[in-house]
């Protein structure tokens, strides 16, 4: 019974992911007429016309590079800042700690898109528009709340005795953070970095707001352009989705091993 249920559920979801993926992948080699008439069939003749057209349009590799730069800097810097702050908050016993936590938690509730005019005016004044640095900064600012939220609850779970023993040994708060809290929180950090990665990688709103130069555009923004440019052609849109995703998929498959290893390592120790 359990086995049947398990297999059924797992297969259904797997199919739900494979079929759309296949439609996109196959569709990128088809003509539009074929995309509509036989979405799931193999292309009658495999044509790289769409890819040639997209690549000769240029730019998508620059967009990809920008996305990688913005995402990796945002994730790493946010993790550093958030883990320090979360550790400190989880260790603070007074009201200030709770107030600060509440302040960050409030940031979770404020929808980003309502602040975009003030943010735009502010970044304009700071000369941070059309700048990858600007995107990194706004990403950090907007993802700090969720990171601090997750990490604080993980740090609070850690046994207090462990810190107290080290404190008796003469270690300062920062050493305790670096040599005890950080290594212990690897699974939490792993999970948080996935959150952050997803948010930064997908972010459309802030690039839309802050970037206009085509050489500074990130992938989601470029995809939106392609949508405008080829609004009427699903085969082109699928091709753009493919080109935008393939390097990511390869990287993801490549990193999958260390990713799983990180998760299990945490589990064995915990």
């Amino acid at each position: 019974m359990y086995k049947v249920l398990r297999t059924l559920a797992l297969t259904t979801f797997a199919i739900a992911i494979v079929i759309p993926t296949a439609i996109v992948a196959l569709g990128s080699f088809k003509s539009d007429v074929e995309v509509y008439s036989k979405p799931l069939a193999l292309p009658t003749n495999w044509s790289f016309r769409n890819y040639n057209r997209l690549i000769s349009d240029g730019g998508i590799f620059t967009n990809f590079k920008n996305s990688v730069i913005v995402t990796s800097f945002s994730v790493v810097l946010t993790l550093i800042l958030a883990s320090m702050a979360a550790f400190a908050i989880s260790r603070m016993t007074n009201v200030t700690g709770r107030v600060l936590f509440g302040l960050f938690a409030l940031g979770l509730a404020i929808p980003g898109q309502v602040n975009i005019i003030p943010i735009y005016l502010l970044f304009q004044r700071l000369h941070l528009t059309n700048s990858l640095l600007g995107l990194v900064l706004i990403n950090i600012a907007t993802t700090l709340p969720i990171s601090i939220f997750i990490l604080t609850s993980f740090f609070r779970e850690l046994p207090k005795e462990m810190f107290e023993v080290s404190a008796i040994d003469g270690a300062g708060p920062f050493q305790i953070y670096r040599s005890i809290a950080l290594p212990l929180s690897r699974p939490a950090m792993g999970a948080t970095s996935i959150f952050l990665f997803v948010i930064s990688w997908n972010d459309l709103l802030y690039p839309l707001l802050l970037v206009t130069q085509s050489d500074k555009k990130t992938l989601p923004l470029a995809l939106l352009d392609y949508r405008g440019e080829y609004a009427t052609s699903f085969s082109m849109i699928f091709t753009a989705v493919m080109v935008a995703s393939i390097p990511m998929v390869v990287m993801y498959l490549f990193m999958q091993r260390s990713f799983i290893a990180g998760l299990t390592a945490g589990a064995v120790k915990g």
């Binding site: 839309l208 707001l209 206009t212 085509s214 939106l224 352009d225 405008g228």
Partner: peptide, 12 residues
């Protein structure tokens, strides 16, 4: 050229 999709052009 600075090009935005028309919906976003209208909006921002």
């Amino acid at each position: 050229q600075v090009i935005m999709p028309s919906g976003d052009y209208t909006n921002t």
